[in-house]
Amino acid sequence: MNKDEPILKVNNLHVTFSTYGGTVQAVRGVDFHLNKGETLAIVGESGCGKSVTSNAIMRLIPDPPGKITAGNIYFKGVDLTKLSEKKMRAIRGVDISMIFQDPMTALNPTLTIGTQLTEGLRQHQKVSKEKAIEKAIDIMEVVGIPNPKERLKQYPHQFSGGMRQRIVIAMALICEPELLIADEPTTALDVTIQAQILELFETIQKATGVSIILITHDLGVVAKIADRIAVMYAGKIIETGNNRDIFYQPQHPYTKGLLNSVPRLDLAGEKLEPIEGTPPDLFSPPKGCPFAARCPYVMEVCNKVFPVQTEYTDSHHVNCWLQDERAKSLLATIANE
């Protein structure tokens, strides 16, 4: 594998869910990559497919009803979508780990912290119980849990929310993964604890060089720790760029709308601007740009064709006809047909 090659490359990923009401197209052709040691944030509102994307990488989409219908997920050059369940099990928790949103429910209430921390290690690396406990104590110290030795014997209900999230992070890190997927890791936590957990991510990344995919709808979190940002809407990625690109020069009207709808303390008295309308129905997603119905700058072409990707700068890509001079000529060809 080439050194500069991204650790993770997702090509044209499609995920659907069959329900009684029809087929939901949750993810509709997502492309992105993640470089080694980098933090990529995938942002978007509820239901845009960001969690489904992360579950697809782990191959944790319940099948049925979910299914990866097209696309490839290359992890270090291996296509995860083609692996058998058994081979995938050897990757989960070892090479790719996942952190869940709600630490109150992510831990099994009937097993001790020690058991839950060490079981992954013991399953994958076949180490002795003593060695596993030693490692668990080390990792608990890394994630900032005092008295790890005593805490190992305790049960989840004896921990506070923030401490539980630290345990969940420790569980994800114990096999020293190369890729960490954090699905809204701070959403269920108090604001003060949120900051601590985010700092913990930064410390861990510095120490281990782990690559992180951060799934969130909280732009404050993103601004703090992401290197690159991918904005997702209705199952598609509509804008990607560096942290600075997205926050200072957002190009897509949706991204601008997202940023405008963040409450800001420095602009006291300013009215908060929500994005009007609701996301499209993913049972029958629109043919054109999914944001067209809510977009203040909508053009005729937007409703007809999904915008091709425009390279605004080398690092900053956007799918919006406003950025594409071909929009006009394309509309003319459609009209002629």
């Binding site: 782990m58 944790l60 099990r89 050897a90 990757i91 989960r92 928790g93 070892v94 780990s97 996942m98 869940f100 949103q101 709600d102 429910t105 992510a106 831990l107 099994n108 209430p109 079981e119 992954g120 399953q123 994958h124 969940v168 569980m171 994800a172």
Partner: peptide, 15 residues
């Protein structure tokens, strides 16, 4: 969630 977490750890279905 804790079952999903257990799956994410790569545990066998039996376990």
């Amino acid at each position: 969630d804790y079952i999903k977490m257990a799956r994410a750890k790569g545990l066998s279905p039996w376990k």
